[in-house]
């Protein structure tokens, strides 16, 4: 029987030019690692959007995904909260189980 450990998965949809700020906040909150995912496009409150690298990425969005322990998640989310509306972030937090708990 494999032992698993409960952790939090945080996913943030962020405009590509603002990604560096999220990375900095993650570093400040001592997030150990993260993965970036490209997006193709979507639709929301601001209308429909598509990934457009030609426009310097200003119209493109990236998904920043990380898995962290409860304390780190709290720190990171508290830092993110003031920026949610200004940066137009979409943040989701979900419970996950990991196998090598010391890594997250």
């Amino acid at each position: 029987m494999v032992t698993t450990h409960p952790r939090k998965k945080i996913e943030i949809l962020v405009d590509a030019p603002l990604l560096s700020r999220i990375q900095q906040l993650a570093k400040d909150a001592e997030v150990k690692g993260y993965t970036l995912q490209r997006t193709i496009g979507g639709e929301g409150g601001q209308g429909r959007w598509r990934a457009e690298e030609v426009t310097g990425g200003a119209g493109s969005k990236v998904v920043f995904a990380t898995i962290v322990d409860e304390d780190t998640a709290d720190r990171f989310l508290s830092d993110l909260e003031p920026l949610l509306s200004e940066y137009g972030l979409l943040v989701t937090v979900s419970p996950v189980e990991v196998i090598r708990g010391e890594r997250f």
Binding site: D15, A16, L18, S20, T55, G56, A58, G59, L83
Partner: peptide
Amino acid sequence: YIAVPAAMRLALPKADAGLYL
């Protein structure tokens, strides 16, 4: 629509990117 949108999104996140682009 290349250099400035990215810089403005970074420096003035309150500005509407959909508008200037």
